[in-house]
């Protein structure tokens, strides 16, 4: 039996006799082009089923989101993309706000009770601002500018995403790498932050001792004062960060 790719639809629809199907499957390994078409057609079919098929949970989820959308975003268009939903009570924004404030207060007190000293010290010493750089017009420059604004408004997640893009395009940009580390540290991605700091420390960049200092802070954030001290001790007396490091070490 010989086949062409025109036989693929019959195969996919199960319209072949068992013998024919077996022969077709035997011929498949020698025809990567058919395999690609079969996989693609199955993907298209699943995709369209997902799009046109009814998904009750998805509709319910959209209904859940409708009042949340109104509470968290301004703007006049309360119609949601795709379909409108009927259910969903509008909860006044003030109510959300008061709940949010209460939750925040509990969290702040909770964190403070859990670990007053390390946390306060971390907050005190982890303050950093990015300097705005002159834009030279490249894409990476504009991303860096956006990152600077986000970083300085303490939107560390957005800053981290932007800075990661800069670092990806400019692997030797230690300035961006250092602040990416700090942004990751602020968003509790300690492991990733440390990978970056270690690279800066080992590479002997201009940010070597800034990175060392923040490496220490990353351990302080976990209340691991001993490891934090170990890192602070690595900062030599002639480094600009020495005084700050000594001062912090005395408080630990």
């Amino acid at each position: 039996m010989t086949f062409t790719k025109e036989d693929i639809p019959r195969y996919l629809d199960g319209d072949m006799s068992p013998d024919e199907e077996a022969a077709f499957e035997k011929a498949l390994p020698d025809n990567p082009e058919w395999q690609e078409l079969i996989a693609l057609q199955q993907e298209v079919e699943t995709g369209l089923q997902q799009h046109f098929g009814a998904d009750e949970t998805r509709e319910q989820l959209k209904a859940t989101m409708q009042p949340l959308r109104q509470a968290h975003f301004g703007g006049g268009n309360d119609q949601q993309p795709g379909e409108a939903t009927k259910s969903g009570r509008v909860v006044p924004f003030r109510k959300y706000l008061s709940v949010a404030v209460a939750v925040a207060a509990v969290l702040i007190v909770g964190v403070w009770l859990w670990n007053p000293s390390s946390d306060k010290l971390y907050e005190k010493y982890a303050i950093a601002q990015m300097d705005s750089q002159t834009e030279r017009g490249s894409h990476a420059d504009s991303v860096l500018a956006a990152a600077t604004i986000a970083f300085n408004s303490k939107d560390y997640v957005v800053a981290a995403v932007d800075l990661a893009e800069v670092v990806q395009q400019q692997p030797n940009n230690t300035y961006a790498a250092f602040y990416l580390g700090v942004a990751l540290l602020h968003t509790d991605q300690l492991t990733q932050a440390r990978v970056i700091f270690e690279k800066l420390i080992r590479g002997g960049s201009a940010f070597k001792y800034d990175a060392t200092f923040y490496q220490a802070l990353s351990f302080l954030k976990e209340n691991d004062k001993e490891t934090a001290k170990d890192w602070l001790e690595k900062i030599p007396a002639d480094a600009p960060q020495y005084a700050k490091a000594q001062e912090l070490m005395k408080k630990l």
Binding site: R58, L61, F73, G76, P81
Partner: peptide, 15 residues
């Protein structure tokens, strides 16, 4: 972007 853009993008991304 506008407030509506933000609300759309957030919701569509979650979907």
């Amino acid at each position: 972007g506008t407030e509506d853009d933000a609300a759309d993008i957030f919701q569509e991304s979650l979907i």
